[in-house]
Simulated scan of single mutants.
Amino acid sequence: MNNSESAEVTVKVKEAQYAIGLRGERSAKLNTANIETCVAFAGINSEKGVVFLCHLNSPWCASKLLPLLIADLERLGLSLNDFNLYTSSTVSPWPLSLVASYAACAILPPALGHIGISVNGWQVFLAAFVAWTAYWHSKRIGLSVALWFAKAYKVKRRFLGYKSLAPGAIRSQVCVDANPLVALPPKVRRYCANSGDRRYAPASAPLKAKGSA
């Protein structure tokens, strides 16, 4: 085990990747960025000095990453139930869901009426609101499904909040650190999108980030 700060690096977790960090090792600090509608999924066990971080960029991403993550944790004698779990995303779905639903309510009934189909505006609004909100939450729903199959559905997850009301230039960076001896939540920082975000573009392979424990 190397305790030298000069030897320490921050493991970069790209989209559709995961990483594990260990206290005192070069992998102790993990970070991911370029999060807009993606979901960062993190776990912290301050007692054992172990953290993990996943960057989920699709509804099925968690189903690909969690079996690998769980297998790695088992080799360390741990399971998801041993961690404080956190999720984070950048853009809130609610303003967009309302705008999209009102637009559908205004456009669809007259358009369908021209071809002889009568629909109620509020029915269209509710259907559009449910569909859009479900779509926006699909990555978190995919995570919940993957956790259910992993039998970790009883573990509470703390959501760290949204950072923006609409998609655009705002992104988030999420960092976890295995070194603190007390339980600290992930650090979430909002920033303006920049050319450095390309470093977090989806990796073709492997699913485990380079430098992970």
Rank of each mutant, 00 (worst) to 15 (best):
S4D: 10
S4I: 02
E5S: 10
E5F: 09
S6V: 08
A7T: 11
T10K: 06
T10E: 10
E15C: 12
A16V: 12
Q17A: 14
Q17M: 14
A19I: 08
A19H: 09
I20A: 03
G21S: 12
L22N: 08
R23D: 07
G24S: 14
R26Y: 01
S27T: 09
S27W: 07
N31K: 07
E36V: 03
C38Q: 04
A40P: 07
A40Y: 02
A40D: 04
G43H: 04
G49C: 10
G49N: 10
V51K: 01
F52I: 09
H55G: 00
H55I: 00
L56M: 05
S58A: 13
S58H: 10
C61A: 11
L68P: 01
L69S: 09
I70M: 05
D72A: 01
D72M: 00
L73Q: 06
E74P: 08
E74D: 13
R75T: 13
L76K: 05
L78V: 03
L78W: 04
N81Y: 00
Y86E: 09
S88D: 00
S89T: 12
S92P: 01
W94K: 04
P95T: 02
S97P: 05
V99D: 05
A100R: 01
A104K: 04
C105P: 02
C105R: 11
I107E: 04
L108E: 02
A111C: 01
L112F: 00
H114Y: 05
G116E: 06
G116Y: 03
S118C: 03
V119R: 02
N120L: 02
N120K: 03
G121Q: 04
F125Q: 01
F125E: 03
F129T: 01
F129H: 05
W132P: 03
W132L: 14
T133Q: 04
A134L: 15
A134E: 13
A134H: 12
Y135G: 05
Y135T: 06
W136V: 07
H137V: 02
S138P: 06
S138F: 05
R140C: 07
I141L: 15
L143I: 02
V145F: 14
L147R: 14
W148G: 09
F149R: 09
A150Y: 07
K151E: 05
K151P: 01
A152Q: 10
K154D: 15
V155R: 06
Y162D: 08
Y162S: 04
Y162V: 04
A169I: 12
S172P: 09
S172K: 12
V174D: 08
V174A: 11
V176C: 02
D177S: 05
D177R: 02
P180D: 10
L181N: 01
V182L: 12
A183T: 12
L184T: 08
P185D: 11
K187T: 14
R189A: 03
Y191M: 14
C192N: 14
G196K: 07
D197M: 11
D197Y: 09
R198V: 15
R198Q: 15
R199W: 13
R199K: 15
R199P: 08
A201Y: 13
P202T: 02
A203E: 10
S204T: 15
A205M: 09
L207I: 11
L207K: 13
K208M: 14
A209D: 02
K210D: 12
A213M: 07
